[in-house]
Nucleic acid binder design. Sequence first.
DNA 1: TCTGGGGTCCTAGGACCC
DNA 2: TCTGGGGTCCTAGGACCC
Length: 421
Amino acid sequence: MFALLDCNNFYVSCERAFQPQYLQKPVCVLSNNDGCVISRSNEAKALGIPMGAVAFEYDTMFKQNQVKLFSANFVLYGDLSRRVMNKVREYCSDVEVYSIDEAFMNFSSQEQYLSIREHCLKLRNIIYKGIGIPTSIGIAPTKTLAKVANRIAKKYPERTQDVYCIETQLQIEKALKWLPIEDVWGIGRRLAERFQKRGVRTAWDFTQLNEATVRKEMGVVGVRMFYELKGIPQLGLELPKTKQSIGVSRTFSQSITALSMIEERVVTFAMVASEKLRAQKSCGNLITVFIRTNTKKTDEKQYVNQFTVSLALPSSSAIEIAKAAKYALSKIFMDGYSYKKAGIIVDGIVPETARQMNLFIEDQHIKHRPIMQVIDNLNKRYKCDKIKLASQDLETRWIMKRQYLSKEFTTNLKDLLVVKV
DNA sequence: TCTGGGGTCCTAGGACCC
DNA sequence: TCTGGGGTCCTAGGACCC
């Protein structure tokens, strides 16, 4: 049996864990630049605030309903996620951390010895008591059905005590008939639309199609889903892998027109991307830079483009990657546009120890490695970007709009809460 | 004034190999 | 009239996830 643990309204729950006065109140967490809503409490959902709601459009609505807003505090969320996952590992030896707020567990080696549901109830309660994060757990014979069970637990918290188990064929059938096709894990907007047009309205309808039809519509991914929903496992737990692509991008709070300004941003993104590469001991050789105007402003001139530079040798040198990024940018930058977003993506990632060498090309990665080590050590020690490339902005004028930021309650000594007796 | 960020997998088609 | 057969690798784009 598989189980899926999912933290309820995770970012909101992280904020509430330290500011419990907002329990039972409408709360939203906003994206970078306080742009849009990325997490909502149940009370906020009940007010009709949709996921991705554009914050400024809801100004009055937030005020009228006393919705408490928070700016995204990913340092806090990352740390609480780590604590939750550690607790999960205490209760199951076979765990896949699927996202910041979700983990799959595989109980196949333990199931004859314990009641999985009882076990998961204990886990759920200890996480709530010890970390302050409410979670829901779904249990089923396949990962896809565990997702379904989890949804049922979330929808009916009282009846399920936040933990629901799908076991028998009858339970599978009931659950699938209950689940709209668009809520199946792996069915997005496009596929849902296509299936609905053909009268496939629930997950059950989908499982009643024949395999060939499913293969034609969705390829092998669909066939896997087909059997997973019928209770025949196609997916196992996945081992943590090093990333195969690393991206860093930002939307600017104000549009940029000058090449020099965008160049500074792109170099900074290159710096961050190279740090991530080095952190997982990888190198990459394909450096893509993209830029775009504000595609939401239909009355303005639009321009979207990207360019990829292929390095002779895979590298994690910030200097080399930044240089490639600057070149890529120069190939696509056009005067006369207002740019709203830019980013860099590094692909062609290989382990540092498995780089293909070349006899006749100077190896910048090796040449720069000692400098990169010093940079990484200093930035780690001082927990910020003390060392920058000269083409980066040395004045840190790029301050994100984070009007409602909470403290780093668990990762910064000066933010520790003081408990009065 | 104001609209997030970071990933994965699969497939089709082109370029190339013998 | 008619033009082989069997592969690999790479890339762009589409779909999805959180």
